[in-house]
Design a protein around this nucleic acid. Sequence first.
DNA 1: GACCCCACTTACTTCTTGGTAAGTACCCCA
DNA 2: TGGGGTACTTACCAAGAAGTAAGTGGGGTC
Lengths: 122, 122
Amino acid sequence: MVKSKLPYVCGIDAAIDVVGGKWKVLILWALDHGTTRRFADLRRELPGVSEKVLIQQLRELAADEVVHREVFHEVPPHVEYSLTEFGDSLNEALRPLGAWGRRHIKTIEANRRPAEFDIATG
Amino acid sequence: MVKSKLPYVCGIDAAIDVVGGKWKVLILWALDHGTTRRFADLRRELPGVSEKVLIQQLRELAADEVVHREVFHEVPPHVEYSLTEFGDSLNEALRPLGAWGRRHIKTIEANRRPAEFDIATG
DNA sequence: GACCCCACTTACTTCTTGGTAAGTACCCCA
DNA sequence: TGGGGTACTTACCAAGAAGTAAGTGGGGTC
């Protein structure tokens, strides 16, 4: 995702900057409805993400105050990730866009791979 | 902007793929409310965009059936860009996200430049 | 004839993002 | 003592998105 230059010229610009990483909306989705997840849980829920990138995006979301990171100093210690209220409001704002994408996902995919076939290649 | 791998795992993934270029939401905004614009108009309305990137993003939006490109074979010939109905529905779906970004733009900007000052540097 | 506008196209470079793979440090269990 | 789990960090590399700059080919204007 391409970062917009600051200052943002409009709200969408800013919002997409927050949400534009390859795995960020998926992380937001995984933490929806007040869900709490550990680092290793998220790894398992996002097949294909590397540890490096997952941490990177979690840190960025935390820096944006969208995700809350809490360390539990128990034995053994662990870390829990959840949405902040701010993150929750972001997820709400994303819902119409998600619905649009879901509604048109076939069209979008088709336009994105004009060289491929939808039928099985023999 | 980072492209998601196909097939998309959720609608947001797909939508952000359509809208994720650096200038795309700005183009969508410029063409909002049935507005029609020429290439040169858009260049002027998006200060900082290069011709190469503007055309590239217009072509991608057209390939996604979000933007309509019409050539007028008059003398002199020219080209007009406008939103399709599909693009219009996308803009509608983007509005809540835009409102969220606008509401929190100060917070987002502040979190995005922790090393800079908001007061003028002397 | 020189210059501007329109709508691009092309070649080259840089910068950012993400991916790969390995290492760290600590704990528990058998 | 070897293996597994937790939560990272680090270094290196590749792909792609965007930026720069120049060229194209038409027309119209002074």
